[in-house]
Design a binder for these strands. Structure first.
Lengths: 129, 129
DNA sequence: ATGAGTTTGACAATCATTCTCATTTAGGTT
DNA sequence: AACCTAAATGAGAATGATTGTCAAACTCAT
């Protein structure tokens, strides 16, 4: 299990740059369209690969919408969760130390070895009300 | 918006019966295979439709695995969350009043009108360790 | 500048899920 | 019991996100 070294390419920079300007969770398809509309030439498969790679390193966050599509967003690097607007996908990061602790406790009680958890809160943001 | 009345069909009963015997989250495809292997003649599309219908009424729970596939399971009807084994998909229901409260608080602080939330804890169960 | 290993892109291939529509059925009505 | 009509089913086509393929282009240490 050797650590992968990601090479710095024009395409990867473009994806990272776009992500830095978006505050909502976006699908690979959306990111790709944005890139194209900006005049960046990047293949769709490359966008998929880049987003997945970034997600694996923890550089960006992933979640699934109701249709099972993967949505990505650049976030702070420390552990946190999300408050997501179901209308516009706008996202607010939230942290919840107490919930983390609860999670650990529950798992231990049931004999599980925790590998991760998902906590997303969905609703309508102030703007979309 | 008139309430739909679901007719009682052989196929729907078969799906419900199978679900009652499964304690892990299963995909529509898996449920379909199980039905077939039991000699039940049910179309794949019907399994999909039935599972979705059941999920909509809240009769069964849905969640998405890492690949974005929808997984279903018959659960208790009151509000709860899940501890899911990532190896075998075995599931333990958990309830978390304190987390519900926290959820409400956070949303209110951020001006969101909550529509729902997802809390799933993933790990390896005692058997799969 | 060079070479090995990565990455990319165009497009084909997957695969879960949904759609279509002709045929069958459930459940209420005579 | 035969009838009616909306709902449900099934077989297969269609969709659409995601992944695989592989030759060509690129990165980066030397």
């Amino acid at each position: 299990m050797v650590a992968e070294q990601l090479k710095s390419t024009r395409q990867r920079k473009a994806v990272s740059n776009i992500l830095a300007t978006i505050t909502k969770f976006s699908s690979a398809q959306e990111v790709h369209k944005l890139l194209i509309s900006r005049g960046e030439k990047v293949g769709l498969a490359t966008v998929y690969r880049t987003l997945q790679a970034l997600a694996e390193t923890g550089a960006i966050d992933v979640l699934r919408n109701d249709d099972g599509e993967a949505l990505y967003r650049a976030c702070s690097t420390d552990h946190h969760h999300h408050l997501v607007c179901t209308k516009c996908n706008k996202t607010t990061e939230i942290s919840a130390p107490e919930v983390e602790i609860w999670t650990e406790k529950i798992a231990r009680e049931q004999g599980y070895l925790i590998s991760g958890h998902t906590i997303e809160v969905f609703g309508t943001c102030a703007n979309c009300r």
